[in-house]
Computed example of a mutant assay.
Amino acid sequence: MNKKLNKHRKASIKLKRRLVFSLFFGYLALFPAPSTALTMTLENMVTDMQNPHQRLPNGVPDSYDWFRHPIIQQRTPPDGFKAITGWGQVYQNNPGKDVQQKIEIRNFQTYIIDNNFNVQKIQSTDSVTGGIYEPSYINNESTFASIIATPAGSTLAQLVGEHPFQFWPKAGRVNFPNDNPIIGIIVTVEARLLPIEKFKNVPSAPVFILSVGADYWKTTTSAWDEYHSSKGIATGRFKLLTQDWHCYTMTTMTKAPPQLAHTAFAC
């Protein structure tokens, strides 16, 4: 009897191990080795900033200046402002859809361009954090966002219905150098939606869009205070999220200088 029980226990243990390995490697299969990083030229970024959004962000008041198209608000830092951060935001385009969608984010970059056309990368990370907000960002209030790091080093976040997910580098804001005047800001990121079988070939599947932007801050630790200590720099073009990696960008340059026009910036 004991021998039979031992055989059953061993078989049960083997089955459990197989299930664990199967789940583990199935999870890893969602995050294969990183593909080659995407790039975009400054010339193409400038063109993107001149086009309307591919889709409109659901729930944003149409009085907001960034509702229909990209907007540049503050090219140069206001007096007394020493810090900066790039950010991204994900909105649902079609309201009322069941959402179980996750977004994967990697290669978040913020660059500055000085008056000598020198380019400096001041933020570069795969690790982002963020929160779930009201579509209007009323009072800047947010709730917890489910965010994890993947085995590939990227960041995975759960999207929540009709509430946008805003994200920024986990390391936080950075001070910008004061050597030369800033004439341009660039923010780039790569993102994709994780495949979900239930939405495969379904016309009514949720549609998500992403844009990136940046803010100036008085210091790296300033608290939000109704925009006294922070000023919006720009909001880039909302573009569709798909299950393929895409590059999302913003620049405050309204014309690409010949020295940089064809420079490929890593996303």
Rank of each mutant, 00 (worst) to 15 (best):
M1C: 08
L5T: 00
K7S: 11
H8A: 13
A11T: 08
A11N: 14
S12W: 08
K14F: 14
R18M: 14
L19I: 12
F21H: 11
S22C: 10
F25K: 10
F25A: 01
Y27D: 03
L28N: 11
A33Q: 11
T36Q: 13
T36D: 12
T36Y: 01
A37Q: 12
T39D: 05
M49R: 07
M49G: 05
P52A: 06
R55S: 14
N58F: 12
G59R: 04
V60P: 04
D65P: 00
D65C: 03
W66F: 13
H69A: 12
H69I: 02
I72G: 05
T76W: 00
F81E: 08
K82T: 15
I84T: 10
W87K: 07
G88N: 06
Q89H: 05
Q89V: 15
Q92H: 07
Q92T: 14
K97P: 03
V99A: 02
V99E: 09
K102S: 09
K102Q: 14
E104R: 07
I105Q: 09
F108R: 05
F108V: 05
T110Q: 11
I113W: 00
D114V: 06
N115I: 09
N116M: 12
N118D: 14
V119W: 04
K121T: 11
T125Q: 05
D126A: 07
D126M: 01
S127N: 12
V128Q: 10
G130S: 09
G130F: 07
G130M: 11
G131A: 14
I132Y: 02
Y133S: 12
N140A: 14
A145P: 07
I147Y: 11
I147W: 11
I148L: 06
P151V: 03
A152T: 06
S154V: 01
L156M: 08
A157K: 01
L159V: 02
L159A: 01
V160D: 11
G161I: 04
E162L: 00
E162P: 00
E162S: 13
E162K: 05
F165K: 03
F167T: 11
P169S: 09
G172C: 09
G172N: 10
V174A: 04
N175C: 06
N178C: 01
P181I: 09
I183T: 13
I186R: 04
T188Y: 03
R192S: 01
R192F: 02
R192A: 03
R192D: 03
R192Q: 04
L194Y: 02
P195A: 05
I196V: 14
E197H: 06
N201W: 00
V202Y: 11
P203S: 13
S204E: 15
A205D: 07
V212N: 08
G213K: 10
A214M: 06
Y216R: 09
A223M: 08
W224T: 04
D225T: 06
Y227V: 02
Y227W: 14
K231S: 15
G232F: 08
I233W: 07
I233P: 07
F238H: 12
K239V: 07
T242N: 05
D244F: 01
W245N: 11
H246P: 00
H246F: 05
H246N: 15
Y248W: 12
T251A: 10
T252P: 02
T252C: 07
M253R: 06
A256G: 12
Q259R: 12
Q259G: 04
Q259C: 03
L260T: 09
H262C: 01
A264G: 03
F265S: 06
C267Q: 06
C267N: 04
C267S: 09
